[in-house]
């Protein structure tokens, strides 16, 4: 149920991100990582599956703006969700781990963009702004979701 509930704001965020174009920061990616990190499921496998589906859904929504080159956001966000949910099991200092996962996802995205033949512009501002957004988002999420 939580997964379904999380899809609604993510869908709205994707619509916004598609409307403004590939602008900074990559809020969708940041939110996928944060929500995947906070996934609450009975088993670790279920947590990873839910996070992967979450990321795939968001990636699909983002890729729909250009169906001809679809797959990039789909793969990156699905992997990011899976990685965030997996690392949650072994890392306890979540804030910094989240930041690292987000940065890795951003780098992977730019790498795949380059492979895809659309060389990215200077990725520095995206990485910095997404990292800061991630921290803020995570702090807000921590305030909203009571810790167990």
């Amino acid at each position: 149920m939580r997964l379904v509930t999380a899809l609604v704001p993510l869908y709205l965020l994707c619509l916004t991100q598609v409307a403004v174009g590939p602008m900074f920061p990559q809020l969708a990616l940041v939110l996928v990582v944060v929500l995947s990190w906070g996934q609450d499921s009975a088993s670790s496998g279920g947590r990873r599956l839910a996070a992967t589906l979450l990321g795939a859904f968001v990636g699909l929504c983002l890729d729909l703006s250009a169906p001809g080159s679809a797959g990039l956001n789909l793969l990156v966000l699905a992997l990011s969700g899976y990685a965030a949910a997996s690392l949650k099991l072994v890392i306890y200092r979540g804030r910094w781990a989240l930041l690292l996962i987000c940065l890795a996802a951003l780098v992977a995205r730019w790498f795949l963009l380059a492979l895809d033949g659309s060389p990215a512009a200077n990725p520095g501002p995206v990485v910095v702004s997404s990292g800061l957004t991630l921290l803020l988002t995570y702090l807000v999420a921590q305030l909203l979701v009571p810790s167990r």
């Binding site: 088993s43 496998g45 279920g46 990873r48 599956l49 992967t52 589906l53 795939a56 990636g59 169906p67 001809g68 080159s69 679809a70 797959g71 990039l72 789909l74 793969l75 699905a78 992997l79 899976y82 795949l112």
Partner: peptide, 25 residues
């Protein structure tokens, strides 16, 4: 477990979409 396998199937599907022909996509 089966859930992880399903997650990897999803990721493999994403990879397939990435390398699928643009016309098909």
């Amino acid at each position: 477990n089966w859930q992880d396998r399903l997650a990897w199937v999803v990721i493999a599907f994403c990879l397939a979409v990435l390398f699928a022909p643009a016309r098909l996509k």
